[in-house]
Design a protein around this nucleic acid. Sequence first.
RNA 1: GGGCACGUAGCUCAGUGGGAGAGCGCUCGCUUCACACGCGAGAGGUCGCUGGUUCGAAACCAGCCGUGCCCACCA
Length: 879
Amino acid sequence: MDDRLKELERRTRFDPAEVEPGIAERWLESGLFHPAPEGEAAENYSIAIPPPNVTGSLHMGHALNGSIQDVLVRYRRMTGRRTKWILGTDHAGIATQAQVEKALRAEGTSRQELGREEFVRRVWEWREHYGHTIVAQLKRLGASCDYSEERFTLDDGYHRAVVAVFVALYEQGLVYRDRYIVNWDPGTHSAISDLEVEEREETDTLYSIRYDLLAGDGAAGHGQAAPGGVTIATVRPETLLADTAVAVNPRDERYTDLVGRTAILPLVGRHLPVIADDYVKTDFGTGQLKVTPAHDPNDFEIGRRHELDQVSVIGEDGRMTSEAGERFAGLTVQDARQAVVQALREEGRIVAEEPYRHSVPYSHRSGRRIEPLISLQWFMRMDELAAPAIQAVRDGAVRIVPDNHRRVYLDWMQNIRPWCLSRQLWWGHRLPVYYCDRCGETLVAEQPPERCVSCHGELRQDEDVLDTWFSSALWPFATLGWPAQTPELAAFYPTDVLSTARDILFLWVARMIMMGLRFTGRVPFGEVYIHSVIQAPDGRRMSKSLGTGIDPVEEIERHGADAVRFGLLAMSSSQDVRYSAEKVQQGQALANKLFNATRFALLRIASLPGVDLAALAPAPRPRTVADRWILSRLQQVLADTAARIESYDFSHAALGLYDFVYAELCDWYLEIVKPRLASDAEPDLDLAATLLHLLRQTVALAHPIIPFVTEELWSYLGGDGLLAGAAWPRADVSLIDMDAEVALERVVEAVTAIRGWRDSVGARPGLIVPARLRADGYDGTQGMLARLARMDLATDGAGPEPVAIVAVPCGVLEILSDDGLDLAAAEQRRQAARGKLQAEIARVEGKLANGRFLERAPAEVVASEREKLARLHDEMEAL
RNA sequence: GGGCACGUAGCUCAGUGGGAGAGCGCUCGCUUCACACGCGAGAGGUCGCUGGUUCGAAACCAGCCGUGCCCACCA
């Protein structure tokens, strides 16, 4: 026995922490993860990783998606495809800037103090320091990304792609600048897109407020209030200061005579035209609406329709502006609300107050309440881009799995709205937009122009940066060198699949499809796989702030990367799932089981007299029915696993593997062949070759799911090179043997029945019980039955009368001695079994006595029920 | 307001038209010469409720109850 085997003999457990890092290192050094950019995308296999935030660390979502993508990538690599998993990180504008600003505050400084250039330099420094954490964690997970070509959404090449796209879209008229109402986030001090807003249900007070009408429409008695007036309802009285109209529905007969008159804004005295607009609901409140174009998205639209003035009373700092009047200027929105209510109350204008439940917009980024404001921003018109992206999903050029997300995608795309692209941040792709202050010219260009083309004046670059998702939208092709037509682009674009959770379906996936089609003329990926969201074990969101997060890295340290991968894959499904520590445990157990099964087989084979393990060629050389059975089962699990991986059914792939290794390979096959491996027996070279073959195929089959332990075992099983680069074992239909499967199923059932009986009569585990088998279909399996059930089977049919009978498939086992058995104890159990059987017989008999059943059920179902009844009667007989 | 899921053993989940399953937990028994992160045997379920379709429903349909998520501009 060589030294490695001796060392293996001492390792009674698989210790992940001991071997996993070393194996990861060997993979990286092998170059297997870095394919040459050759061939065409159609024959190659590629996945672009959803780029994690550069400041982030691995969370459960990353761990699950990393496991999923790695299964796909490792499987394809083993099937011989040239496979590339494109890796990189996202600069994550707001998130990263916020982190660095926080650090600066801790240092007692701020980005304003440092200035833009220095601040950006500091962020790059930060990225250098902390930006590699998550990549290192992906390596630890075993993710077989192409680490030699890590991209970053802000590196030079990527920036060129972003600028080229922005300029092109501007020239095509899709990107434009507008003073428009945006979702202003006072927390990040920036506009954010609709998708970054989350609505929260809150209870506020709904105030009904009376506005006077100008007497005689301002003709006579100028400034005098007319009787009656209008009553509006609002939850935001502070915005009243910015009202510029009152609106009613044109079909609202109560108010037709009001239209065209003038209301007087309380506290301010501004004259407000009463206008008619379809937006106003006649059945809500009084049917009279205050119109505040500068602070409400709906009112903004009404304002545009009616060319109303825009008065802004809330500033970007979330405080009231001077436009709000001396009395309120400088107050926070909250304080202003109280102050306005107080003032209105003093004037007796509040006619009703009631609690009101409604949804309030909050920033997904900062958690602050969104302040709708009018602001000069860059936008992108989406309808023209959406049309082909809708078509691509409709006609299947992009297939969304599971397909219930398809409609969600289509619905959203069909109602798509302009995208606010600009962000008032410093960290990101600065807009390639240059203004001439002298003549007002706006230039949009890839290269910064020297001077204004019109007047040769000085140019000033726009201060804003692009929404991070704008650069992310280019990910599948910008990472491969686009706009240059690189070999990488030819070899790996379009990618094959995009795997992600559904929360970024619109934010990212839809935009990639639109941009991919627009700029490469092709879909960026053929399939989108939407995976589960892993919730905390109690069903809540996993989040740091709730304290419900579970750190996958800690789990890896505790249980091994294989265990975590297996667990996450086994948990995953087409819907959200709770984190299951048991599944991880199951994965750890599987790794250990496989390790020990291999260890056992190798050590036994090596100790067979005259056998040279190194010279033994693995091959299926079945000699017994059990050999034929396990080889047949192996083919089935090979085919199943391949099919399940290809159809994104990872939980069944993982659990099917577990079942094969545990139940069939270890519990039955290895137990059955143990005597044939006894070192004092004549060496069974066929068995040795078969076992080696079996283990090598099993380990290869399991590799995409649990790569570390299988790689480790591969080195003992004499595989050439690394398993990560080995061939996937294809199922061989010629090895499928239904006769052997039937025979073994029968033994398994019989042994299980006999063990149960033994337990019920209190037979000591070591006790060999004399018995006689009177049953069909046990040719070639009697020996294993006797040994596994601890029976001494009589060979002749005659002999003593049985003292007890045990039912087995297709017959009975007669027990010939009651030594060491408490037969009476079995009685209760037998009664229970009889009761169960009786009920079942009654059920089947009832069925067969039902004329309608006989008449309408398919003939084969009736026949099988008849057979079943006969079998049940036999079993009853035996009992 | 609209949409998508889900409700099966104590827990987490499979099962999509013909005798209710797994892992964990629980009970009992085992140092059986790979693994005690092990082996063997068990207990435990009116498959949310009510109707319907069907010879037959955990599965298909409808309604209800409960839970989760997404989308949405009624002040």
